[in-house]
Design a protein around this nucleic acid. Structure first.
Length: 239
RNA sequence: AAACCGCUUA
């Protein structure tokens, strides 16, 4: 049954099996709960998810961090940020937070909803807790700020990010590049590119198209063309 | 064993 739930995982089938289990008086373990909860999370059925968590608590199953994490995801998805933050606090108190991921989930949700100040609060809280930040959180914040047009914040965060040791990767670089191009800071764009080169991070087509459109905006058509050629050399198709 | 994050109107 375990295997069936997991591999069918995503759908109503899992729910059906779960019901069947209960009807037969079998006790569900946390594995069952989490896979089912995930199915709910996927569909944004937050009431169901909430009920499930209550149920599992009352039946003595301890919600592990995966479960709580999934629950948070549902809340964020449905716009219940207050509840999401409560779950987050719960995670905190029980010392279940091993990384920044849960914070990022909330932050991202807040940022997407345009509640950037809230997101920043979460962000600061995270830092205050001394949770190691490997750059994902910065990515989230930077891109939200650049979307919001808050360029000072973008720069500040970017600097801050550079001052700590972060694991740069492609998505990060793309985030930075996009943010810089929105700010229109050519210097930083170039610097970022150099850094990419140094770190042997190879650009993908998103990188290229970000660059090209930025260059075009800056009327640097030669550069844009050059970038385009580069792109083809690396085997990317221009679209 | 399972879930989760950032470039996605790029």
């Amino acid at each position: 049954v375990l295997a069936i739930c997991a591999s069918n995982g995503r759908d109503e089938e899992a729910e059906a099996y779960f019901q069947q289990m209960k009807n037969e008086g079998l006790s569900a373990n946390e594995f069952h709960y989490s896979s089912l909860l995930n199915a709910y999370a996927e569909k944004g059925k937050y009431e169901q998810a909430e009920k499930l968590v209550d149920e599992m608590k009352s039946s003595g199953v301890v919600p592990n961090k995966v479960v709580l994490n999934s629950l948070m995801k549902v809340y964020v998805k449905s716009g219940y940020f207050g509840k999401a933050k409560k779950v987050l606090a719960e995670l905190n108190n029980s010392g279940h937070i091993s990384n920044e991921v849960p914070y990022c989930t909330v932050m991202h949700g807040l940022a997407k909803a345009g509640k950037i100040e809230e997101a920043e609060k979460v962000f600061n809280e995270m830092k205050a807790k001394g949770i190691k930040s490997d750059g994902y959180s910065y990515s989230v914040m930077i891109s939200s700020y650049s979307k919001n047009g808050n360029f000072e914040k973008v720069k500040k965060l970017a600097k801050e990010m550079e001052s700590i040791q972060v694991n740069y990767d492609l998505a990060m670089m793309n985030t930075l590049l996009k943010a810089y191009s929105r700010v229109g800071d050519m210097e930083c764009v170039i610097q970022t590119l150099k850094k990419m080169d140094k770190l042997k991070i190879s650009p993908n087509w998103i990188t290229f198209s970000t660059l090209i459109s930025y260059f075009c905006e800056e009327k640097l058509y030669d550069l844009a063309l050059h970038t385009l050629e580069d792109m083809q050399i690396k085997g990317h198709q221009p679209t």
